[in-house]
Design a protein around this nucleic acid. Sequence first.
DNA 1: ATTAGCACTCAGCCGACAAGAGTGCTGATA
DNA 2: TATCAGCACTCTTGTCGGCTGAGTGCTAAT
Lengths: 337, 337
Amino acid sequence: MAKRQLLNERSLQLLKSLIERYISDGQPVGSRVLSKDADLNLSPATIRNVMADLEDLGLIHSPHTSAGRVPTVTGYRLFVDTLLTVKPISSPELFRLQEGLLTENTPDVISVASRLLSELSQMAGVVTLPKRELIILRHIEFLPLSNTRMLVIVVTNDQEVHNKIINTSKTFSASELQQATNYLNSKYAGKSLIAIREAILNDLQADREAMNQGMLDAVNMAQAALENGPGKDGYVLSGETNLMEFSELSNMERLKTLFEAFSQKQGVLHLLDQCMKADGVQIFIGEESGYKAFDHCSLITAPYRSATKWSVCWASSGRLAWLMKKLFPLSMSRQNY
Amino acid sequence: MAKRQLLNERSLQLLKSLIERYISDGQPVGSRVLSKDADLNLSPATIRNVMADLEDLGLIHSPHTSAGRVPTVTGYRLFVDTLLTVKPISSPELFRLQEGLLTENTPDVISVASRLLSELSQMAGVVTLPKRELIILRHIEFLPLSNTRMLVIVVTNDQEVHNKIINTSKTFSASELQQATNYLNSKYAGKSLIAIREAILNDLQADREAMNQGMLDAVNMAQAALENGPGKDGYVLSGETNLMEFSELSNMERLKTLFEAFSQKQGVLHLLDQCMKADGVQIFIGEESGYKAFDHCSLITAPYRSATKWSVCWASSGRLAWLMKKLFPLSMSRQNY
DNA sequence: ATTAGCACTCAGCCGACAAGAGTGCTGATA
DNA sequence: TATCAGCACTCTTGTCGGCTGAGTGCTAAT
């Protein structure tokens, strides 16, 4: 009986039309509209047959007997993997991006980027902060606070300043601190923090006896300061209120868990960490991210590398292909099955 | 006819019971429940009479013919001004506060405070950052970035570090920068920023010819750095998702405007600025704050002064008296009309 | 292989109806 | 004169049934 292959050129074209229609309308799409909408001239009845096939394959499904069809997660996945065609970003929008990122001379470009991302996409924008490993030390400074406490200021590349309070076992004089500052700056400035930490360990092991007490103290302090110190990673979120517009999130319960997930950053951070390992645009649809709070959302990530940073962008499920077209000027290949 | 005074001891007692009941239930309260609930033994009929009087005075009103009564804004105002009795904070909660604020050695106590505030109140907690005027300079440092740009690091009391990038018209050598650093630190460390700014102005006018060029440059740079520089004020918000629980905010529209108001901080900051001028606990009910986004919320503020900081706490309207009781161990006087 | 036609299903909407809650008013009572 | 019981009235809320429109699956015709 199954003489024709279920997934042919026509049914794929139909699936594409259906998903695009669903993305723009947000409602289940029936055979009637699709028959007018699609390029192929088919009657609603034929389309119903094809849709039945697509449903058998698990690519679409209907919420109830007499509603239209809605793409499933696997349907979406197929769509973004092989069907999606993206338009290049429009030039006014491109201009706006350049405008915003270049002329703004505010120190944190990252929040500007996050805001632009959310405004352009009408969704939530997330931009991760630089990771510690690749930060280069410019300058380090010690300031006494009380007898056993001191403030350590670390200036890195990208004109970022981090500070940390550390407790020391012994009391240092102002001149000792100055000496330590000079020693560390002359020896380690210009190197990456990860290299510095290794170097410090080596110094401690090799030259322990050769170093005088002051240098030893300085190294110890620096180590304490670098321990989880600068670049406590995080991200900048903006436009989260945009997510309230989506019917998928009209449920208060879901909305709340989503917002709570955003405000306790660990989970999101861990997720983004993994995204950064990949090298291009990545798309997570619905539950694919593996985080319960984001089951009803989709996630589009892309690494960025101005000095060494990464970016990502959240989207509510459904509208994500629209977002894709808007943001990423990639032309994905179209295959036949 | 109006022989009895409308607002007597009994009707006030009734108003108090009504509001407390409404606070805990969140629903309009009728004469029946009030007759059982109130200390005074009155029949529902009598209570209806009294409630009619209270309604004439504009203290309560009914949403529709056969719903119970709900306090109006003026009713709330009367309640918090003269009727509210607050319990001292419970000792386990007090312990938790002390625990959280003292043992945490994380540098920003402020976010801890904000979180504690929101957890304890089950509402949104807001804690403002210190204002610039009362900050005392501990240390200032210049770091060259490029020819005409330099990074200025300002360390203030409270172990806070601020940094700013400034553009200079001429190029400075490393030794000039060092000289400027030494000069400024020796002359101004330990003074408040506002005093420093005045002193700088004076120096510029009086000693212009007496100062050498290096000192003059240093002063100019310091002024540029202090201009809007450190302590760009803001606040720390937490527990905003708690607000989603309230029926008053179940309306998506309202919730969205509220969240947006929180994320563009200016409006809120301006409001809080005014709160800080007052000296005790202040309560804004509904529209009293004057900010549209907060029309359906109430605001409780209280200044705090560890070094010189302020705090406030948001509450959704309705439940605010409950929050009052929980947080502020004040015993307000009770008056008769 | 495609399509027109038909019967079937189901969500959404509307009106009717009953129940419940609460009020205002009147007249009785201490 | 203050309080209160009783009664009629109003208004919300929930439920039930019927109707409509959209959409499907199936069958038979082209």
